[in-house]
Design a protein around this nucleic acid. Sequence first.
DNA 1: TTAGCGTGTGCACACGCGTGCAGAGACATG
DNA 2: CATGTCTCTGCACGCGTGTGCACACGCTAA
Lengths: 337, 337
Amino acid sequence: MKGPKKTVSSAEVARLAGVSRSAVSRTFTPGAYVSEETRRRVLEAAEMLHYSPNAIARSLSKKSSGLVGIIASNLDNPFYAAMLAELSSQLQRHDYGILLLVADSPKLDTLIPKLLSYQVDGVILPAATLSSQMAVILQRSGRPVVLVNRYLRDEVVSSVSGDNVGGGRAVAELLVATGHRRIAFIAGQDDTSSSRDRQQGLAEGLARHGIAICARETGQFNHHQGAIAARQLLSRYPRPDAIFCANDVMAMGALEVAKVEFGLRVPEDLAIVGYDNSEQAGWPLHQLTTVDQHLGAMAREAVELLVDRLRTGHDGIEHRIVPATLVQRATTRRRPD
Amino acid sequence: MKGPKKTVSSAEVARLAGVSRSAVSRTFTPGAYVSEETRRRVLEAAEMLHYSPNAIARSLSKKSSGLVGIIASNLDNPFYAAMLAELSSQLQRHDYGILLLVADSPKLDTLIPKLLSYQVDGVILPAATLSSQMAVILQRSGRPVVLVNRYLRDEVVSSVSGDNVGGGRAVAELLVATGHRRIAFIAGQDDTSSSRDRQQGLAEGLARHGIAICARETGQFNHHQGAIAARQLLSRYPRPDAIFCANDVMAMGALEVAKVEFGLRVPEDLAIVGYDNSEQAGWPLHQLTTVDQHLGAMAREAVELLVDRLRTGHDGIEHRIVPATLVQRATTRRRPD
DNA sequence: TTAGCGTGTGCACACGCGTGCAGAGACATG
DNA sequence: CATGTCTCTGCACGCGTGTGCACACGCTAA
């Protein structure tokens, strides 16, 4: 019970079982040539010694670690926390291990090489903003990379995203159909494709009815900045009669500001729409109308995309888009039939 | 640009630099004997070939992977999502890599051995409920383990937790001081030490004033079940005039039920207190009175505890307790002076 | 009997790296 | 010059595994 237990190797198992080390190795390698008798003796010896194969050594030998790197960020946003959980679960289902990097620190650029040094077989980046230098390094490593909920202008790396343009368009349709004309937008960060695309979708949808976005602020995808943006928007004259926020967290901030500070009735005086359909959005106190990105599907597609490339070894950039669904709740007026 | 780039090894760098492989190794090993001249040539050659040391091979050779396993769960709870982020950040600061396991799947028991097979140097478990069988396996592996926000009856593994008893007691004092007498409790899961201790603290604090907990329900630490529990409690007669919930998520569920379904004024008709001081608790719409566990401090202590054992190799069970702080907001009455 | 075949098995090398050890120089000291 | 010290370098082995290859063995067919 004291000291770091001496690690038991396949050699010792082999000795105890009276076979060669190869036999042990083959016993633990699915689909290898071992007689039933040998396998039995090996397993017995292994159990006795509490042997379990050393994945590090295996990785070295097979030149494949069975590890996938995930570069997570924005974990304070429930959407990305859930995304991480979902990605992990999917990867575990495919028997991959996960090397995690949390990228809120600005040291990201020194951390990615470290990730690669562990010979991860592939990398998934949900929502990370990737410096072009790191993109080059990842590219050069020759390992498949999948971006989730982001993409890069130069189509150099695969991605899975929600249909942000379509989602924005659906919001536009809903707002127009329920009688709104002065529609404002609260963006996330300007350099993210998701925020840009949602805005574009909104603009397109409105344009179809000859309407333009009446005002726009930036909320950095977080609650506090979202509230500030809403405060700005609601102080204008004429006041917007609807606000579309690039995510739920900001929408809840806007909702609070509208109710608490401006005493507005929602949706009578002001409609508010979010994006993500996070769990909180459905809570009775919010009842936020929002857009469901089908996070589970996105995670599944991302992992599938990656695993496919890992198994077949084929490389090829691919961009998948997961449809989005409008979820009507209590922060928008009822649609007339 | 095609195919998995051939991995470049230290031998090739050595050849290009005209030195031995040892020199290359030493150049990348802090505190090793290399002349300035050799180091320069090696670094130059390395840069030219885009060489970076293979951490897997290093791990095998050094018999230490530089990896720490984190077994996460309940990522849908903002508190644990933040905890994961904080733990990661702390570990990264200490230059450890993170092998992540998300344990919401019931397959946890098959996953832990896999984690160990990657030769993690240590393991951190926030909030995981550990089967006794896995506890044995972890124990046998001889690797340091730290439980966060949980502990085991048999003091066989180190832990860091918040002062749940103290927190519960503080809540009791507040509620009594603000005139409440019929105080109910919504528990998390019965088999978690954190929920039990918070309840115990509450009971102790109330007992000091000759009061007992008037009712109790279980909310599984999640929003939905929390709301159901609140519904039960508020349907009783006489109705409780205060509810203490074992975490914020359940408290928000209770808050909703109280306001929306029962039309109660908070805090006039009913006081509600949560636990965790999650970000959402502070949002204007909730303004939830709660207990701050000082998550950052907990993460720091946990990592420090682990890293200390990793560096010094000394083993020894230790239990640390991080003080909790009551955060008064709008869901409880103002304290009289 | 001999040749041929199919099934298991063990040998030996490879994977990429760290490091103890011995030894080569350079230099100072006696 | 002889000896010692100090700084660096390369050799060679070990870390624990996977696997190509040769080969042993038992059996069948000619």
